[in-house]
Amino acid sequence: MTEPMCRIDATAAAIDAMDQLAAEHGELVLHIPGGAEEAGTPMCFGAGELRVGARDVFLGTAHGVEVYEQASRPDAHFRAGWDAHLDVVPGRAPGFSLHPEDGMRFTIHDSRPADHRAGTGAEAAG
């Protein structure tokens, strides 16, 4: 496994959701699709159900669960050294994602400054 891109913490609710899903489905993996409409909405799979590809970036682990992001847009993925925060919120997860509970989905966001999100070119090296 390669070095993680960032540190990922998880709320108590996200940890409970991952524990519940792991008890039912075994080892898990989270994957953030590359499309803008799903940005920040990781899909959850049983570890054997996701084929990690060459364009997937290993972000790190949250509560022992590997987290990847599809790097389809160079300015869209997390950068080395940033902190990311995993939680659960109301809503439907995209695609074939496992759902933490009915009407809930995982969400992830980072703590980078607003000027980095805006694509101003002031992004941190990494």
Rank of each mutant, 00 (worst) to 15 (best):
R92M: 14
G91Q: 06
A80Q: 14
D75W: 04
H77V: 12
A62E: 01
L86M: 08
V67Y: 00
H63W: 04
H63I: 04
T61I: 04
A84Y: 00
F78L: 15
P90I: 07
R92L: 14
V89G: 08
D56C: 07
G53P: 01
D87L: 05
V57M: 15
V89F: 04
V57K: 15
W82D: 14
D75Q: 11
S72C: 11
V88M: 13
G91P: 05
G60M: 03
P94N: 09
A93I: 02
Q70A: 14
E69P: 02
Q70R: 13
S97W: 00
V57Y: 02
P74A: 10
G60D: 02
H63Q: 10
Q70S: 08
S97P: 04
H85L: 15
P74S: 08
S72H: 09
A84C: 14
T61F: 01
G64F: 02
A71K: 09
L86A: 05
R73D: 09
A76E: 07
G53Q: 09
E66F: 00
T61H: 04
F96E: 15
E66S: 05
G81Q: 07
A71F: 00
A84V: 03
G81W: 01
V57A: 12
D87Y: 01
G81D: 08
G81C: 04
H85N: 13
A62T: 00
F78G: 15
G81L: 06
P94Q: 06
G95E: 10
P74M: 05
D75Y: 03
R73L: 12
H63V: 04
A93H: 02
A71R: 08
V88W: 03
A76L: 13
L86V: 02
F96T: 15
A93Y: 00
G53R: 13
G64E: 09
D56A: 05
A80C: 10
G60A: 03
Y68V: 02
D83I: 04
R79V: 08
A54S: 11
V67E: 01
F78V: 15
A80V: 12
G60L: 02
F96W: 13
G64S: 11
A93P: 07
A93R: 03
S97F: 01
V57C: 12
G64D: 10
H63E: 14
P94T: 06
G60T: 01
E66Y: 00
A84S: 14
G60C: 02
L59N: 01
P74Q: 07
E66R: 10
S97L: 10
D83N: 15
Q70D: 06
R73A: 13
H77F: 03
F78M: 15
P94I: 04
L59M: 11
A76S: 15
D87M: 09
A80F: 05
G53M: 05
S72Q: 12
D87T: 12
S72E: 10
